[in-house]
């Protein structure tokens, strides 16, 4: 059990920084007046964030990733199952990277 004081301080600062971002958005937005425009904005956030997370991987990292993404989208729209889609993606990218 080794705990270095400077390391602990660093980890605590990391924890404060991360929690501040997790709580901050909720805190700030719950102070906003919920007009139609603000509601529309909040409503579009989930899709926009998820698209932003996947876009560089899907569109700009290679053919294997792009094709595996296509397979995931097809399987997900057919089955609607998250586990099946995940396994499909991992297997597809494994095979396609080996081929590439």
């Amino acid at each position: 059990m080794r705990l270095d004081p400077l390391t602990i301080i660093t980890i605590l600062l990391m924890a404060v920084a991360t929690y501040a971002t997790r709580a901050g958005g909720l805190w700030l937005a719950s102070r906003l007046e919920l007009s139609g425009r603000v509601e529309a904005w909040l409503d579009y956030i989930p899709g926009a964030i998820l698209v932003s997370i996947v876009a560089p991987v899907v569109l700009a990292s290679g053919l294997a990733e792009a094709l595996a993404a296509l397979a995931v989208v097809l399987v997900a729209s057919r089955t609607g199952s998250l586990p099946v889609a995940m396994v499909t993606g991992v297997c597809a990218v494994l095979v396609l990277r080996t081929l590439a």
Binding site: V54, A85, G89, C91
Partner: peptide, 17 residues
């Protein structure tokens, strides 16, 4: 291929959204 697991999950959620 594990790095792609989360990408696949997010893609599947996007399909539903």
């Amino acid at each position: 291929g594990l790095d792609f697991a989360f990408t696949a999950v997010f893609l599947a959620l996007l399909v539903g959204m």
